[in-house]
């Protein structure tokens, strides 16, 4: 089985791109399953089901969805193997701009859209910087110049990635993307021992875990204080 991790800011077009790409693969007889990691709520499972793609969803609640991803992907992988999929696609909402659900040796795709503003590529960090493929969506509604400027910004953040423009509505470009989803050499049987491409913040504070009360005594874990003495403009 092949495994692919897809991440990207909310509403960037991940589900649209995955479904269009999966459709071209399914036409060629590839058996696909998907999993969606999100925080509080998602209707993506409905969209996948409608497209005939078996789907599992996981809501991380108060945790960062990417942390949740790491602790659950093994089990999801086992489900995929049991179902006999040729390809398992993991979609995660990139809510935490500090983390990314990418695993070494497992193909990593970042979906980002032309409408999100030219400073977004810089802001979203490892999710973009560590991806193998960057998919840029919503090119159908902005000008050619804006597409070129946006692509140049993406390139400056991640010069090594393959950058593809895909229209999530019409599926233009999805066939081409699909050819990179399947690697006949890859047989992922377990993720045990594999490493994340980039460490997730190691120190979690009590607020990460749902604490809402303010005050010194509630601040557990790794808590840092601002230095208000120094006048910093940095």
């Amino acid at each position: 089985m092949n495994l692919i991790t897809i991440s990207g800011p909310p509403s960037s077009g991940k589900t649209a791109v995955i479904i269009k790409t999966a459709e071209t693969l399914m036409k060629r007889g590839v058996k696909i399953g998907a999993v969606k990691f999100d925080c509080l709520h998602t209707d993506d499972d409905v969209a996948y089901e409608k497209a005939g793609i078996p789907i599992k969803k996981g809501l991380s609640g108060q945790l960062c969805p990417d942390h949740y991803f790491v602790s659950n992907i093994e089990a999801v992988l086992e489900w995929g193997l049991k179902e006999g999929f040729d390809l398992l696609v993991s979609e995660s909402a990139g809510l935490c701009n500090r983390c990314s659900p990418y695993v070494k040796e497992i193909k990593a795709v970042c979906v980002i859209d032309n409408l999100s503003g030219i400073n977004t590529p810089k802001k979203i960090g490892p999710m973009l910087r560590m991806a193998d493929i960057v998919v840029i969506t919503k090119g159908d509604i902005v000008s050619q110049a804006e597409r070129e400027v946006f692509a140049a910004r993406v390139h400056a953040v991640n010069p090594t990635a393959i950058v593809m423009n895909i229209n999530g509505l019409t599926g233009q470009g999805a066939y081409e993307l699909s050819t990179m989803f399947i690697d006949s050499e890859q047989h992922v049987k377990t993720l045990k021992g594999k490493k994340l491409r980039f460490s997730m913040p190691s120190a979690l504070c009590s607020y990460c875990l749902g604490e809402t009360r303010i005050g010194e005594s509630y601040q557990l874990g790794n808590v840092r204080k601002m230095n208000l003495e120094e006048n910093s403009n940095a």
Binding site: D140, S143, Q144, E146, H155, V163
Partner: peptide, 21 residues
């Protein structure tokens, strides 16, 4: 022409495209 980001063969102009910046 396929993979490099600064090198795309086709530029596109269509009626639904707008400036957003």
């Amino acid at each position: 022409w396929r993979y490099a980001s600064g090198k795309k063969l086709v530029a596109q102009l269509s009626q639904n495209m707008n400036f957003v910046m």
